[in-house]
Write a protein that binds this DNA or RNA. Structure first.
Length: 204
DNA sequence: TACTAGATCGGCT
DNA sequence: GCCGATCTAGTAG
């Protein structure tokens, strides 16, 4: 039974809290992307928190620059960055203005518009089992599947282009907490959260 | 299944 | 110049 109800969009206040608190609460929520008349959606299954006030792995740790300025706004907007010369990653900005916090969306479970996501990722709509598992199980893959790029940086998440929809809370026993992946600084912070046994989590 | 290298480029030193 | 909040294809076991 699918609970995706566009009337249950997460309000601005949801995002104005501390990054690691928002991160845990984001698990299970629906991430919705509208492209024209088509809606694409995935259930969030893996996230990481970042806080530039002391966290050296956060882009905002070095202070405000052209690249990271979006992340210094009040929570409730999207921070999209380009990395490794070819990938985009998307984050939900959290906390208050000038705090420099965000939650990286690392993996989602495809829910709606799967064929369109498949075309964005693999140029075809019929996928093998392996391709399906690789549709949105990583931050760069999500942005490719949902066609999120530079232009989407700063998008207001209370608008109707990209937004998050509430869903039943994930039971705490189903939430696994670990250190973050793919970084070299502040590696000991326990700020990665994912849903236990979900097929689309990027790494066990 | 596990590890490694290559792709590719914007941001910052 | 160096390196990154990554992904993929390749090789070896």
């Amino acid at each position: 039974m699918l609970h995706l109800d566009f009337n249950k969009k997460l309000p601005k206040e949801f995002y104005l809290r501390y990054t690691s608190d928002v991160a845990g609460d984001l698990l299970g929520k629906y991430f919705v992307r509208r492209i024209g008349k088509n809606f694409l959606a995935g259930k969030i299954v893996e996230v990481e928190a970042y806080d530039g006030s002391f966290d050296e792995a956060a882009h905002t740790f070095i202070g405000k620059t052209k690249r990271n300025e979006v992340m210094f706004n009040d929570g409730g907007i999207l921070y999209v960055y380009f990395t490794y010369g070819m990938h985009f990653c998307c984050n939900v900005v959290t906390g208050k203005k000038d705090e420099g916090q965000a939650v990286l969306i690392r993996a989602v479970e495809p829910i709606l518009g799967v064929e369109i996501m498949a075309k964005h990722r693999f140029g075809k709509s019929n996928l093998t089992q392996n391709e399906f598992r690789n549709l949105t199980n990583g931050p760069g893959k999500i942005c490719q599947a949902l066609r999120i790029r530079r232009k989407e940086n700063g998008t207001d998440l209370t608008g109707d282009e990209i937004f998050l929809v509430d869903n039943n809370k994930i039971h705490s026993k189903k939430i696994i907490t670990t250190t973050r992946i793919g970084i070299k600084k502040s590696v000991d912070l326990p700020w990665r959260f994912y849903i236990k046994d979900n097929l689309f989590v990027s790494q066990k």
